[in-house]
């Protein structure tokens, strides 16, 4: 393992998304990862484009958004340092459903999707571990969307 890969493995192991993942899997992921930084207002990916990577954010703030003709892009939610960004890479047809834009200087570990998928196929134990983590995030985000649908801060108040 090169120093660079070892450094990435250390950072991967510290990322909340991978907390508790066995070292052997973390080291395998490190070989598929690179570090990257972006200034604010950088588009990380766009709707309908190939989802060939995903991001473990270490610092920064990213909008997940959707373009609406004739209007400003609609921001659906934000993710930030400590979050994982992107799961379209995991399921066919491997295209992004939404777009992502940095709104602050952002730093992330970028993982190559094809390599990670291959690893999932080769090691069901690793694949199960990873899918459980992605499912956990998906459930959290679904839960948050449901709360927004409930109009959390303004359920019809009593009229007094």
């Amino acid at each position: 393992m090169t120093d660079e890969v070892a450094g990435i493995a250390t950072r991967l192991a510290k990322h909340p998304f991978l907390a508790g993942m066995p070292d052997v899997h973390v080291q395998a992921l490190a070989g598929l990862a690179r570090l990257q930084r972006w200034p604010a207002d950088t588009r990380l990916f766009s709707e309908h484009r190939t989802a060939d990577r995903f991001f473990l954010l270490e610092e920064g703030l990213v909008y997940i958004e959707m373009p609406i003709p004739g209007q400003e892009d609609m921001v659906l939610e934000t993710v930030r340092g400590g979050d994982v960004l992107g799961w379209s890479w995991l399921f066919p047809p491997y295209v992004w459903h939404f777009s992502a834009l940095t709104v602050a200087p952002t730093e992330a570990i970028v993982l190559a999707a094809a390599g990670v998928r291959e690893r999932c196929e080769a090691s069901p134990e690793f694949g199960y571990d990873l899918i459980r983590r992605v499912a956990g995030v998906a459930i959290q985000r679904l839960h948050a969307v449901r709360l927004r649908l409930m109009n959390l801060y303004d359920p019809t108040p009593p009229r007094r």
Partner: peptide, 23 residues
């Protein structure tokens, strides 16, 4: 601070307040 729905000029977080808790 987080808002359910952003607006022109808003550069902060978007999502319900519970999403701020984990971090």
């Amino acid at each position: 601070i987080t808002v359910d729905r952003g607006a022109p000029g808003w550069r902060g977080q978007v999502g319900v307040v519970t999403t701020l808790l984990p971090q």
